[in-house]
Amino acid sequence: METEQLYRTYKSLLFSLAYRMLGNVMDAEDIVHEAFLLLEKIDHPEEIRNTKAYLCKIVTNRSIDKLRSAAKKREVYVGTWLPDPLVEEYSADPSSFYMTKESVSTAYLLLLQQLTEVERAVFLLREMFQYDYDDIASIVGKSNANCRQIFHRAKKGIMHNPDSMKQDFGQLSGYVEEFAQAVQDGNMSEILALLKKDAVYYSDGGGKIIAATRPVYGAEYIARFFLGVINKLPEGFSIKFAKVNGGPGIVIIVSGNVKYVLSVEVKDEKIRSIYMVANPDKLSHLKAF
């Protein structure tokens, strides 16, 4: 199979693996590009028995290396770290994109951060991509038995809410749109009605832009925070609704540039968590639409 055809076949899969590992869009794209460049340089590609596994091995190991080299930067990161947002318009075809599943939600990606680099790789290859343990062992350089132990340990440590996968996208988008309208209207009671009392708001400015450096807890504090933010936005800003990390979200555009991207987590028909990325480095891959 020609490299160009392999690229079309496996690009989305490899990007989804790298992005889940890293939470960084541009780094994930660079690693995928590098994997195909390395494939092209092989003198006898016909000797590779499983090209897909070979490419996954390159992407996995490069992602592990990237995570280890970035560990110190993460330790001194200013405020809350959130993954780069993946943004699609509502009309995008979810069947054509590996990234529209619940497993790329902001909440889920943050759970993955609790795992070590190798644990994350083993967990993703098994849980998300259904690799058998022999292939995983070959990719990460561990024994079959060791990979089984790593997977079961990681799965216990990364509990998530399976009910969130069953939630209707249209219903969830309704909560997001109602919340945005209530904030724009300055309707405190409506905002409080949409939020769980113990809701949490996380923002990532990375020290590059003014943002809450610590999570904001409680519906009333979150409501007051958003009412303060909306009043400080310059005239001419616009709000767009989009699919953010597989779920409904909000993109705020100022002077033609994406300034804020919000995603939410809903439980019991109310918003439980709000995640806002404002760090311009994490929004540079997005274009206003």
Rank of each mutant, 00 (worst) to 15 (best):
I253C: 10
D204S: 08
N231K: 15
V251P: 07
R224S: 13
A223C: 07
K240W: 12
I253L: 08
T213E: 14
V244E: 03
A223M: 07
V254R: 12
G206D: 03
V258P: 04
N257R: 13
G218C: 11
G236Y: 06
V254T: 11
I210E: 09
I253Y: 08
D204T: 11
R224N: 13
S238P: 06
P248A: 01
A211Q: 01
G246R: 04
K243V: 12
I209G: 00
E220C: 05
Y221F: 14
Y260H: 10
A212V: 10
Y217W: 11
E220H: 14
F226H: 15
P248S: 04
R224M: 12
R214I: 09
I222F: 02
N231V: 08
Y217D: 03
G207E: 04
K240L: 08
Y221A: 14
I239R: 05
K232M: 15
G205D: 02
I252W: 00
S203A: 08
E235R: 15
I230M: 06
G207A: 00
L233E: 07
F226V: 05
I222R: 12
A219W: 13
P215H: 01
F241Y: 15
I210S: 07
S255G: 03
G236I: 13
Y221T: 14
V251I: 10
F226Q: 14
A223F: 04
I209H: 03
N257C: 02
K243H: 06
G249Y: 00
G249N: 12
G205L: 06
G246S: 06
G206T: 04
G246H: 03
G256R: 09
A211V: 14
A242I: 06
F225A: 00
I239F: 01
S255K: 15
K208C: 00
A211Y: 10
N231D: 11
F225D: 01
T213F: 00
A223D: 04
P234Q: 10
G218R: 13
V244N: 13
V251C: 08
L233G: 05
E220A: 09
G249S: 13
F237V: 11
I222S: 03
I222T: 07
I210K: 09
E220Y: 13
G256M: 03
Y260K: 10
F237P: 13
R224E: 12
E235N: 11
K208L: 01
I252K: 10
S255H: 07
G205Q: 09
F237H: 15
A211S: 09
G246P: 07
L233M: 12
G218E: 04
G207D: 01
I252S: 08
